[in-house]
Design a binder for these strands. Structure first.
Length: 615
DNA sequence: GCAAGGTC
């Protein structure tokens, strides 16, 4: 019996082949330069000794589009909500390889990632394989379930296949259809209308996407909050006292008030007392936690914050390092290491480095701390970690140097002890009011020694107060402050917002940000750090849509996309169906489209006004 | 010329 195994990407095909064959496999090339076919023997408990060919695709095999009758210009944009959709092969050479290899195979086994998209890619592989071999039936397809590449886990997965999950496949096909219909119809509507009035160049496209616009919406929303902010004054009491020649400031436990007179009255009462009394002294042990295992989103947030690197550049650098075997797979949502993870071996490979090698050695001698466990798991990939050692001086790209060093330091930090400090705090009673002051002493830096990006330092120490002691107040004043505007959006914050609202995935968040930059909807600006602000066009589009009278929905906010995500999960869980979700969400977007279509001139004129006001 | 999702 011959069994054809197909993974989602070349690296998995190679590694699984190596494990199942015990290293004894033959490699054949395919027409695609990334894809190899591996032949070996393996004993499947259900079939006995089999000839296996293991190969892979490179992500999705097929894409969707409208038939020629619905080409841009051939029909009105609104028609696209109910137009026929055709599937097209995007990578013919990859597709052909599956067709060929399936011809004389008695069994197909899918080894794609254990997530929703992986299930759908499995279905695409099945369809390609059936082209070459019509004896393959979907209900007989083996689907392996594996979440990492540890040997015994892979052997287990090979022995215990399940069937393809049609519910997950339907969920993805629902997403694909909705994104295409909504994206294409709104993009054509916007582009044609804006071009018609010369708001955008003839060569430009004004795209709408279910992820692009909520992303743009976040940026516009923040920008408007900054611009419309009016500071408000507030008042509070601050006290200073001196002991042993050391002056210490105490802060009011009541915080601050916006009513000056009220604060004034309390202050007047305080002033009747010359002395204050230390009524409480406390010593607390403080921990500063080592970081969680690294996900893609965290990597991008940190690289943006620490190195001013765009999310896209960070992911690209990590991908290059992965392709040369230096880092593990860089697209992961998992922040927990598998129980079998080889921490010792991974740390040992870093001991020769001149920057962090000594620390790595010390960890090995003094004991590796168990990494913390987060609560995210994509069931497909482990957290990002260094695989093989590379001296960063030999890397040519500055981004790659930074990303590799960061991943190593982050990993070593994960295996280190938390930082420990002692916090001393004192409470002072002055008249009827209480005030506090505290000092921090970092006693053990631990992970902070290696994770140099983060600062947690000792503050000024408190003098040795004594419980109950009465000390003269050397300064008690009313201080005026004012509320400050929120800051402009940083890329780090934008990534966090998208992640929290389910806009995009670990693999696509960076692309969405990049896209709205390339469309000219937002720009990056240097202003004490890098910020992202909307362009007049981006402002105009969001405010234009927000000004329309939709029925309880918004085209610029993340709610609809989030609702889709929730519905997709319900399809997977079996509590609803693809048809129901499509009917509901397509209906909502279709309504919004017809309102937009009616008011498109208003939107265009509005964009025009905003642009001319800002030029 | 349109989307978002995989991956190289």
């Amino acid at each position: 019996m011959k069994i054809l195994c197909v993974a989602e990407k070349p690296s998995i095909a190679k590694e699984v082949s190596r494990i199942l064959s015990g290293g004894n496999f033959r490699t054949r090339n395919s027409k695609n330069k990334y894809i190899k076919n591996y032949d070996f023997k393996f004993n499947f408990p259900r079939k006995g000794s089999c000839d296996v060919t293991m190969t892979s695709v490179v992500g999705h095999l097929t894409g969707v589009d409208f038939p020629p009758a619905y080409k841009w210009g051939n029909c009105i944009a609104g028609k696209l909500f109910d137009a026929e959709i055709v599937e097209k092969v995007m990578k013919q050479d990859v597709f052909d390889n599956i067709v060929n290899e399936a011809r004389n195979s008695g069994q197909l086994m899918i080894w794609t990632d254990c997530d929703r998209e992986g299930e759908y890619i499995g279905y695409e592989i099945f369809k390609a394989a059936s082209k070459g071999n019509n004896r393959l039936a979907i209900e007989n397809i083996w689907r392996s379930r594996f979440s990492h590449l540890e040997r015994s886990h892979i052997i287990q997965a090979a022995a215990n296949p399940v069937t393809l999950d049609l519910k997950a496949i339907n969920a993805v096909s629902c997403r694909i259809e909705l994104d295409l219909r909504v994206g294409a119809s709104f993009t054509r509507l916007l582009t044609d209308a804006l071009k018609n009035k010369s708001v955008i160049d003839a060569k430009d496209v004004a795209s709408y996407g279910t992820c692009q616009f909520p992303t743009l919406g976040f940026v516009v929303d923040r920008y408007k909050r900054v611009k419309s902010f009016t500071p408000e004054k507030f008042w509070h009491i601050q006290v200073e006292l001196a002991k042993d020649g050391v002056k210490t400031n105490f802060n009011w436990t009541k915080g601050h008030f916006f009513d000056r007179l009220y604060v004034m009255n309390l202050y007047q009462e305080c002033l009747k007392h010359k002395d204050g009394k230390i009524i409480k002294l406390e010593q607390k042990r403080r921990s500063n936690y080592r970081p969680l295992p690294l996900t893609t989103v965290e990597l991008q947030k940190d690289c943006s914050m620490f190195f001013k690197m765009s999310a896209k550049a960070a992911l690209e650098a990590a991908e290059k390092l992965y392709n040369r075997g230096f880092l593990s797979y860089p697209r992961t949502e998992t922040d927990t290491f598998p129980a079998t993870f080889d921490f010792k071996g991974t740390i040992e490979r870093q001991t020769s480095d001149s920057r962090w090698g000594e620390y790595a050695s010390r960890l090995l001698t003094n004991g590796i701390e168990n990494a913390r466990s987060g609560n995210k798991n994509d069931e497909a990939h482990p957290p990002i970690h260094p695989v093989n050692y590379v001296n960063i001086n030999t890397l040519t790209s500055a981004d790659e140097k930074k990303v590799y060093e960061y991943v190593v330091r982050r990993f070593l930090a994960c295996c280190s002890k938390d930082a420990i400090g002692q916090q001393t705090s004192a409470t002072l009673l002055w008249g009827d009011e209480t005030f506090t002051s505290s000092g921090l002493m970092v006693t053990e830096k631990n992970y902070l020694e290696i994770y140099t990006y983060k600062k947690w330092e000792s503050s000024k120490q408190l003098p040795k107060f004594i419980q109950g002691e009465v000390l003269p107040i050397t300064g008690g004043i009313i201080k005026e402050g004012k509320t400050t505007a929120p800051n402009y959006m940083t890329e780090t914050e934008l990534i966090a917002l998208m992640d929290a609202n389910g806009i995009g995935t670990d693999a696509t968040i960076a692309e969405h940000i990049d896209k709205i930059i390339n469309r000219g909807y937002v720009v990056k600006e240097k202003k004490k750090g890098e910020i992202i602000v909307p362009s007049p066009l981006g402002m105009g589009l969001i405010e234009g849509f927000d000004g329309m009278d939709f029925d309880n929905i918004s085209l610029s906010k993340p709610f609809l996309r989030k609702r889709l995500e929730t519905s997709l999960q319900q399809i997977v869980d079996g509590t609803t169906t693809k048809d129901e979700v499509l009917a509901e969400l397509k209906g909502l977007y279709k309504q919004a489209f017809s309102v937009s279509n009616r008011n498109i001139n208003q939107l265009v004129n509005y964009c025009k006004t905003v642009i001319s006001e800002n030029s």
